[in-house]
Nucleic acid binder design. Structure first.
Lengths: 260, 260
DNA sequence: CGACTGATTGAGCGATTTCAAGGGTTGTGG
DNA sequence: CCACAACCCTTGAAATCGCTCAATCAGTCG
């Protein structure tokens, strides 16, 4: 198949949460698909669309957007490379929210039909698909707590912790730094606060020497400190124990010695 | 089977979102299960438990509870009769949050093994299970918007609208009234606000003659008004069009004439 | 009849938003 | 390569919303 790299990213993701036989792995890699480039800030799935394909992010960042009646936008999910953004659309093709590329993004589309057929033939793989949706729901539940019951600084810190771990898990963290493609207003749209207040909270996190943020990268300066402030417990991400340990080692070691 | 009534409730639920053949329906009704009574405010699944059964609510109300590091509790989901509370545990048995009965509740437990076997034999039914989890996730996404981007009064109103529709959908609304088993503090725990402030918002909703609340029942007084204030759009509940129309008719007709 | 739990109300405080304006960065076209 | 425009970040001051603390009232269960 043509876009083997993308399918491999997804397979790696599935393998973090499910054990798959060789046959099942091969079936994933043999899925038909096609590639779409989406430019920044473009919706590629709109509310109410009836989709026929599921979208896999290979490169870039995708946000799931919802809207209140008075036009306020809220980001309810973020998807990094390797995420199948709307795997759920296989069983529920009518989109209940819009999908937008945040910055230029590469998408690989896989037909629902192919996914269904494969899942029917290999029930254990079907369960892996289902499990992936369940983990997404667990992330969502954590966002509810975050937005509902955490003070502003912790809210921002928690999202940053989550993205740090998710980027590290897919090998896109560079030492203690990872890509952070959101603007501060978008960060506000996901944490339920004003861009102004996001800015002040970020300033706090910087002052406390917990992180540094420049040119679309965030550097974790004090991982334990950030984690504590955020009340971050990565259990809900369902990552393998050893991977998690490696990530923590990556972020935690060699505390920076900057500033007296 | 012994608890056919409970399984029938669940089957009805599944049929709202999936078309099932006679064989598939029979398979659902033939599932093995056992019954558990849970007294008020008791956790029957704890964080981190490895479960072997999925829990179906037959009677009462169940809340999914999460906790922040500093002990604040947040309710991330509510489950009414007919809901399979943790169907997702079939593919992900380690509980990522606790389940608590809100008031005395009757649970029917179905073994994961039986659900898996049935799903393997009848792939379309397996997809119905998966779909159910997807709808739960859609509800969760809506809660994120609610808690993140709506002012307090609308937040409370939105939850009330959702529960009104969900109770009506399972035939438990009595005219314009439906059971409301949460205390005001619990309502605060789900909407991310203090019980004091919940109280004031409820008072507002009463003053504006949108609803009445007494002895564990809420009566919808002005459905269009409540819906508008809440910005409520039931799309995310994935209910059949005609059922929804019937529910709206039920709530909307015969506006109450009380009080000059 | 107490003892409890839940609902209600008031006053003061603090967190977050709003409004507003200025400075920096990035990308683009000349 | 520069100039410009657009967008993003940053900061301040005032207003608002929701929280905390505290007390009282109303049902409910033994």
């Amino acid at each position: 198949m043509k876009y083997r790299k993308a399918l491999n990213q997804w397979l790696d993701r599935l393998l973090m949460r499910s054990e798959l036989s060789t046959r099942e792995r091969d079936a994933v890699l043999a899925l038909p698909c096609d590639l779409v480039e989406v430019s920044a800030n473009r919706d590629f799935v709109r509310l109410g669309d009836h989709t026929t394909h599921a979208c896999l992010v290979t490169d870039g960042l995708v946000g799931r957007f919802a809207q209140t009646a008075d036009g306020e936008r809220q980001i309810t999910a973020l998807h990094v490379p390797g995420d199948m953004v709307d795997l759920h659309s296989v069983v529920s093709p009518a989109a209940t929210s819009a999908l937008q590329a945040i910055g230029r993004t590469t998408i690989v589309r896989v037909p629902h039909m192919a996914l269904k057929r494969t899942a029917d033939e290999l029930p254990e793989l079907g369960r892996a698909f289902w499990r992936d949706c369940v983990v997404d729901a667990a992330i969502l539940a954590t966002w509810v707590i975050n937005v509902g019951h955490r003070p502003a600084a912790a809210r921002v810190a928690h999202l940053i912790c989550e993205l740090a771990v998710r980027y590290a898990a897919i090998g896109l963290a560079n030492g203690q730094s990872f890509p952070f493609l959101l603007t501060q207003s978008q960060l506000g749209e996901t944490t339920g606060m004003t861009s102004v207040h996001v800015n002040r909270m970020i300033a706090q996190l910087r002052e406390r020497r917990l992180l540094a943020w420049r040119s679309r990268m965030i550097e974790i300066v004090d991982w334990p400190g950030l984690r504590t402030l955020a009340g971050f417990d990565p259990l809900y991400l369902s990552l393998p124990e050893d991977l998690l340990r490696r990530i923590y080692a990556l972020f935690g070691t060699s505390r920076r010695m900057t500033a007296a």
